[in-house]
């Protein structure tokens, strides 16, 4: 058994050794790792870019004052750095946007996934994806020059909305998010297995019952992920609120008819102005940026978990 033809045998065996260099393969691997490290470097860069000036800021303004203060007046003579007015404006815009986008987005998704025939879906789904790519500066323009005059015209009376106001920014943002929510929830609804639907139909369920009691619950983590992604986009969106939402946020207000600066609008507005580098006002941009980063980080974490769960169930 052990006596194989010795000469040929050992030659064949030896040839298996790693004599041959594969320079292309090893070079490629180095390049691939280097490319992958770029995204790590990006995150590290973001953290450094935010933290360094933010430390300077927090040496002069306490974190507690920043997080709990209700007055934000960096450009006034009496300076105050409480971030809550910016947060409040962000919350108002986000809530309005969601009130519009979630029902319309989900309704569209349910119709496309459960009711529309295949041809309709084949045409409409790509259009929705197309609309999700409209640049946000366009929505800002439309909000300020089309939606706001319309709102002023049809306003029933009493106190009219300001020229720039949170309501109109929220509405425009809601319209902007609809395609995103519709597209992602439709994906998760249409990946609910047919067998589940057929099981329900076989029990004499109506289409509405199947949609609301079988498909939506089965797709819930995908839907939640879509909504969370919508929130994350609303919180981080800059152009609409900068153009149509207002620029001053000295005190906390939840009044949607007033104009107020969100976190992003403040960053955009101050950093495009002429504030001297290294001043407290300049550094406040980074403190607000750091808070914004943390908030969206938390939202992303939730959405990533949800997407993963929805993948686990049906893939």
């Amino acid at each position: 058994m052990t006596t194989s033809t010795p000469s040929a045998g050992s030659a064949a065996g030896n040839a298996l050794r790693r004599g041959r260099r594969r320079p292309v393969d090893s070079t490629v691997k180095v390049l691939l790792v280097a490319a992958a490290l770029v995204s790590i470097a990006t995150t590290v860069g973001i953290v450094i870019a935010l933290v360094q000036p933010a430390i300077g800021f927090f040496q002069q303004v306490s974190i507690v004052e920043f997080l709990t203060g209700t007055s934000w007046t960096p450009t006034f003579a009496q300076k105050a750095y409480g971030v809550l007015p910016l947060v409040a404006a962000t919350v108002v815009v986000t809530v309005i946007a969601l009130l519009i986008a979630v029902p319309i987005g989900l309704g569209s998704a349910i119709y496309l996934s459960e009711y529309a025939n295949r041809r309709t879906r084949k045409v409409l789904k790509p259009i929705i994806e197309l609309l999700a790519g409209v640049p946000t500066v366009v929505y800002g323009f439309v909000a300020l020059f089309a939606l706001n005059p319309l709102l002023q015209d049809i306003w029933p009376g009493g106190r009219k909305p300001a020229f720039q106001n949170l309501l109109i920014a929220g509405i425009a943002m809601g319209i902007m998010i609809v395609p995103t929510i519709a597209s992602i929830s439709e994906d998760s609804m249409s990946s609910v297995p047919r067998s589940l639907r057929e099981g329900a139909y076989a029990l004499a369920s109506t289409k509405m019952q199947v949609s609301t009691r079988v498909v939506v619950p089965a797709a819930i983590s995908g839907i939640v992920a879509a909504v969370v992604l919508g929130i994350s986009r609303a919180v981080g969106e800059t152009m609409i609120v900068t153009i149509a939402g207002g620029l001053v946020s000295d005190k906390v207000t939840f009044d949607p008819l007033e104009g107020a600066a969100t976190m992003t609008a403040f960053i955009a507005n101050v950093s495009s102005g002429d504030i001297p580098v290294g001043s407290l006002d300049y550094d406040s941009v980074f403190a607000v940026g750091a808070l914004l980063f943390l908030i969206t980080f938390a939202l992303n974490a939730v959405s990533i978990r949800m997407v993963r769960r929805f993948r686990e169930v049906y893939e």
């Binding site: 052990t2 040929a8 045998g9 064949a12 065996g13 040839a15 298996l16 050794r17 790693r18 594969r22």
Partner: peptide, 21 residues
């Protein structure tokens, strides 16, 4: 696992050369 007496899982064996044979 030996192939002509050479252990296929020895450290210096190149799996690509193994699969060529």
């Amino acid at each position: 696992v030996t192939y002509h007496g050479q252990d296929l899982y020895a450290k210096d064996v190149d799996p690509i050369e193994v699969r060529r044979r």
